[in-house]
Computed example of a mutant assay.
Amino acid sequence: MFAGEDKFWYNLTTGKVERGFESPAIDRVGPFDTEEEAAAAPKLLAERSRAWADDDAAEDAWGTGSGAASGDEQTDAPGR
């Protein structure tokens, strides 16, 4: 038995949950331990995509002064 053969997968093409390797790997996401987890794959993928996009945006903005701390410069430095 291959690893993942007894797991559940979500088929991105058909929108159906599969057990084992029913379809080509390019069409599947997973593996998931339960059928319910696999059925929730689209929601999980959307949440992860959103988080990755937020991380990318934060990295792109790093050092540009557009972050939350941009107006929080200390004014107690010598010479001020």
Score class of each variant (00 low, 15 high):
Pro24Asp: 04
Ala25Asn: 06
Ala25Leu: 06
Ala25Val: 09
Ile26Leu: 13
Asp27Pro: 06
Asp27Gln: 15
Arg28Ser: 01
Val29Lys: 10
Val29Ile: 06
Gly30Cys: 03
Pro31Phe: 03
Pro31Leu: 00
Phe32Tyr: 15
Asp33Tyr: 01
Asp33Trp: 02
Thr34Ile: 04
Glu35Met: 07
Glu35His: 09
Glu35Gln: 14
Glu35Lys: 10
Glu36Met: 03
Glu36Asp: 08
Glu36Asn: 04
Glu37Ser: 05
Glu37Met: 07
Glu37Gln: 13
Ala38Val: 01
Ala38Trp: 01
Ala38Ile: 00
Ala39Pro: 00
Ala39Gln: 08
Ala40Asp: 11
Ala40Asn: 12
Ala40Tyr: 03
Pro42Lys: 07
Pro42Val: 05
Pro42Glu: 01
Pro42Gln: 05
Leu44His: 05
Leu44Thr: 09
Leu44Trp: 03
Ala46Ile: 04
Glu47Ala: 12
Glu47Phe: 08
Glu47Cys: 06
Glu47Arg: 06
Arg48Leu: 15
Ser49Tyr: 04
Ser49Gln: 13
Ser49Leu: 14
Arg50Met: 12
Ala51Pro: 00
Ala51His: 06
Ala51Gln: 11
Ala51Glu: 10
Ala51Ser: 06
Trp52Lys: 15
Ala53Glu: 09
Ala53Arg: 15
Asp54Thr: 10
Asp54His: 07
Asp55Gln: 10
Asp55Pro: 00
Asp55Gly: 10
Asp55Lys: 08
Ala57Arg: 12
Ala57Val: 00
Ala57Gln: 08
Ala57His: 07
Ala58Arg: 14
Asp60Tyr: 08
Asp60Arg: 15
Asp60Val: 11
Ala61Asn: 08
Trp62Asp: 14
Trp62Phe: 14
Trp62Tyr: 14
Trp62Cys: 10
Gly63Glu: 04
Thr64Asn: 07
Thr64Glu: 05
Gly65Cys: 03
Gly65Glu: 01
Gly65Gln: 03
Gly65Val: 01
Gly65Trp: 00
Gly65Ser: 05
Ser66Asp: 09
Ser66Lys: 12
Gly67Asp: 15
Gly67Trp: 08
Ala68Ile: 08
Ala68Cys: 06
Ala69Lys: 10
Ala69Leu: 14
Ser70Met: 01
Gly71Asn: 10
Gly71Val: 02
Asp72Ala: 15
Asp72Tyr: 10
Asp72Asn: 14
Glu73Phe: 11
Glu73Asn: 10
Glu73Trp: 10
Thr75Glu: 13
Thr75Cys: 07
Thr75Trp: 09
Asp76Phe: 09
Asp76Thr: 04
Asp76His: 03
Asp76Val: 02
Asp76Pro: 00
Ala77Thr: 09
Ala77Glu: 12
Ala77Gly: 04
Ala77Leu: 12
Ala77Trp: 14
